[in-house]
Simulated assay, not measured.
Amino acid sequence: MSNPRPYATLLAKGEERRQRILTVAQRLLTRNGWRSITLGQIAREAGVSPAGLLHHFESKEQLLHAVLDARDAYDEASRDMPGDIIERIEGRAERFRQAPDLVSMFAVLLIENLSPDAPLHERFLNRYRSAVDIVAEGIREGQRAGKYGTDLDPAVKAVEIIAFLNGMETSWLLDPSIPLTEVFQGYARSLARELAPSSGDS
């Protein structure tokens, strides 16, 4: 009977190499943006051959999508956090501290892919629209439950909230000394006042 352990060890080494490539790519993308880096640079920084990198990622675009997949997986893991929209926004500062590399990389790639002909534009646009829809539905749920007033448009308010979050990522990338906790708590309090039911909702 053959010993399966060498194969398992090979798989583990391959996954470790893949993760190392992703980590290096995140760092270089944050520092230089996608236009200024090459697969060769990433391979050198990760300590692998160009052929070794291409074994895991067939193109630069595939690698870009893979690093964004890591960010999306992080967001998915925190999507089921308890609390309503206001509570989640209030705690958002902690997520900046937990994954600063992912936050920074996302902000840089977003700005670089605003043009419709950029390689990741469609993905960022779809992600943005999905985020707006999720926040808008959260507001509607609060309205149906009587927690939020019905005199505002959830879709419009969701655009504002996502703009705040994206803007904070960019501002924090520019100036890491921003008092994140205080800013997010202040915005959450302001949002709570705006969303609160008025006398006409009773």
Rank of each mutant, 00 (worst) to 15 (best):
M1F: 02
N3H: 08
N3P: 05
N3I: 03
R5V: 15
A8H: 10
T9F: 01
A12K: 06
E16K: 12
E16P: 01
E16G: 07
E16W: 02
E16H: 05
R17N: 07
R17L: 02
R18P: 04
T23H: 07
V24N: 03
V24T: 13
R31K: 11
R35V: 10
I37L: 13
I37A: 06
T38L: 08
Q41N: 06
I42N: 12
E45G: 04
A46L: 06
P50D: 03
L53D: 09
L54T: 13
L54F: 11
L54K: 14
H55E: 12
H56Q: 07
E58V: 03
S59F: 07
K60P: 02
Q62N: 05
L63G: 04
H65V: 08
H65I: 08
H65E: 15
A66N: 11
L68E: 07
L68Q: 10
D69E: 12
D69Q: 08
R71Q: 08
A73V: 06
A77D: 11
S78P: 00
M81R: 14
P82M: 05
G83I: 04
I85C: 10
I85V: 15
I86C: 07
R88G: 15
R88P: 06
R88S: 06
I89T: 06
I89W: 05
I89A: 04
R92N: 07
A93L: 00
E94I: 14
R95C: 03
F96H: 15
F96T: 09
R97N: 13
Q98G: 00
A99M: 13
L102S: 10
L102E: 14
S104I: 02
F106Y: 15
A107I: 09
V108H: 13
V108M: 13
L109C: 13
L109R: 14
L110H: 10
L110P: 00
E112M: 05
E112L: 08
S115L: 14
P116L: 08
D117L: 09
L120F: 08
H121K: 12
R123S: 10
L125R: 15
R129Y: 11
R129W: 11
A131Y: 07
A131F: 09
V132L: 10
D133T: 15
I134L: 13
A136W: 03
E137A: 08
I139L: 13
R140V: 12
R140Y: 04
G142V: 09
G142W: 02
G142Q: 06
A145M: 01
G146N: 06
K147V: 02
D151S: 12
A155M: 11
A155I: 08
V156W: 06
V156F: 09
A158R: 01
E160G: 05
E160M: 08
I161Y: 00
I162A: 04
I162G: 02
A163D: 10
L165Q: 12
N166T: 00
G167C: 00
E169T: 03
W172P: 00
L173E: 02
L174F: 03
I178M: 10
I178N: 05
P179G: 08
L180I: 01
L180D: 05
F184T: 06
R189M: 05
R189D: 13
S190I: 01
A192Y: 05
A192M: 05
R193F: 00
E194T: 14
A196R: 15
A196M: 12
A196L: 11
S199V: 13
S199A: 14
S202C: 11
S202L: 15
S202F: 13
